Computed example of a mutant assay.
Amino acid sequence: MSAAPMGGTCDPRFAALREAFAANFTERGEPGGAIALMVDGRLVCDLWGGYRDAARTREWTRETLVNFFSVGKAFTALVALRLVERGLLDLDAPAHCLWPEFGCNGKETITLRHMLSHRAGLPAIREDLPDGAMLGWSRMAEALARQAPWWEPGTAHGYHVNTFGYLVGELVRRASGGTIGEILRDEIAAPLGADVHIGLPSAEHYRAAEFLWPSVLPERPPGVLDGDALMKWNTYWNPPGISGAGWVNRPEWRSAEIPSTNGHGTARGIARVYAALAAGGAIDGVDILSREMLAAATEEQSFGPDRILERESRFALGFQLPQAERPLGPNPQAFGHFGAGGSLGFCDPVARVAFGYVTNDMGPRWQNPRNKALLAAIYGSLGV
């Protein structure tokens, strides 16, 4: 492939990172994206490149943002954990204490901790919902309140791919009166100057890159689905567009709050949030979490066979933790969250780095060669 247009700045110390990013376009099929690296709170690499549309007529710019999918789960968790610090939420209180309608059909013991660690047994909604239902907050919350768990809560874990944000967000709404997107904007993103959003204001839609994902929904497998097969299908495709297929580039999707799935932002914005976490929860006078809350938030809660992913996964309270087949550099203290297509936000408090990567391509999800190359270049430049 020919070289793609690129812009931005990079400290010469991290020339290998610039080269790896450029190679994503020439060797690894990257259509458009951006990276940002902060070390000790200083932005040392801020690069963007490629194109923001499928036709490759509009170049990616410094202000281009894009849907970063599950990277937003970590930001959703941060909002909830801030309310825990204030005493408005309790990690271990039954959710039905705040959400009475939820306390039925075997959900009486489910807590916020279960939700944040993917142990609630609610990765999918059983009742069929129409396409577009994911845009209606009340409709999704009501369906989850009626749903029986797919496994006994707390006894196993399975990635709550799309329900995570509605579950945590409904507790946040009932405890504070605000939404995930509102609190993220007012208490985290705006004070930090971080360009990240859950519910992108319509005035900002012009900056959004087209996400290159087939617009046709997959066909439901033939025959009757039941048990685990139904759970896994519904996790991704009930309602049909809940994962973004057919919707991801529509204004209705960008404006809605779907905290598990439709966060938008720049790589620089992601790195800025993680720079605060790498520094212990605060940076430049802006407090995100106390050191004590951050320590609790990054303790392992779930590790082992994942009922949805059908492989091992490892979670803290809303954050993904490193594991052998999916490391975040060499230091076990790192934490963050990947997003569909390979997008990534993470920090490593030991190396004092914070990193954001965004892309507009649904590339390999679990083992993504693009973000792996970037991670290797970061730590190679650090001499680790």
Rank of each mutant, 00 (worst) to 15 (best):
Glu127Trp: 05
Leu98Arg: 06
Asn67Asp: 12
Pro94Ser: 14
Ala74Val: 01
Ala77Cys: 07
Thr64Ala: 06
Glu59Cys: 05
Ile125Ser: 03
Trp150Lys: 02
Arg126Ile: 01
Asp128Arg: 08
Val84Trp: 14
Leu98Ala: 12
Arg146Leu: 09
Gly72Phe: 05
Pro130Ser: 13
Leu65Cys: 06
Arg58Leu: 14
Ala74Tyr: 10
Trp137Lys: 02
Leu129Gly: 01
Arg86His: 03
Ala120Gly: 10
Thr64Tyr: 09
Leu88Lys: 07
Arg56Tyr: 11
Val79Gly: 06
Leu116Ile: 07
Gly106Leu: 12
Asp92His: 06
Pro94Phe: 15
Ala74Cys: 07
Trp137Asp: 06
Gln147Tyr: 14
Leu91Asp: 13
Trp137Met: 08
Ile110Leu: 13
Arg62Ala: 00
Ala120Asn: 09
Ala93His: 07
Gly136Val: 09
Asn105Asp: 12
Glu108His: 10
Arg113Pro: 00
Gly121Met: 04
Leu78Gly: 11
Cys97Asn: 15
Met115Tyr: 05
Gln147Ala: 08
Thr64Asp: 06
Thr109Gly: 11
Asn67Leu: 14
Ser70His: 01
Ala145Glu: 05
Thr109Cys: 11
Leu78Ala: 12
Asp131Met: 13
Asp92Asn: 09
Glu85Lys: 13
Ala133Ser: 04
Trp60Gln: 09
Thr64Asn: 06
Asn105Phe: 07
Glu59Thr: 01
Ala55Leu: 11
Leu135Glu: 03
Leu83Asn: 05
His114Lys: 04
Met134Phe: 13
Ala95Val: 14
Ala74Ile: 00
Phe68Lys: 03
Arg56Cys: 11
Ala133Val: 00
Ile110Glu: 03
Thr109Gln: 14
Asp128Phe: 08
Thr111Ile: 08
Ala141Arg: 13
Val71Pro: 00
Pro123Gln: 11
Phe68Gly: 00
Leu135Thr: 02
Ser138Phe: 10
Glu127Asp: 15
Gly87Thr: 01
Pro100Asn: 13
Asp53Val: 02
Cys104Lys: 03
Gly72Gln: 12
Asp90His: 14
Leu78Trp: 15
Leu129Gln: 05
Thr64Arg: 11
Trp60Lys: 06
Met140Val: 01
Met115Gly: 04
His114Ser: 06
Gly87Gln: 04
Lys107Met: 09
Leu135Ser: 08
Trp99Tyr: 14
Thr61Gln: 14
Ser138His: 15
Arg146Glu: 08
Leu112Pro: 04
Arg82Thr: 01
Arg86Trp: 03
Gly103Glu: 11
Gly106Ala: 11
Asp90Lys: 03
Asn67Val: 13
Arg86Tyr: 04
Arg86Lys: 10
Ala145Arg: 05
Ser138Arg: 15
Ala141Leu: 08
Leu81Gly: 14
Thr61Phe: 12
Arg56Trp: 07
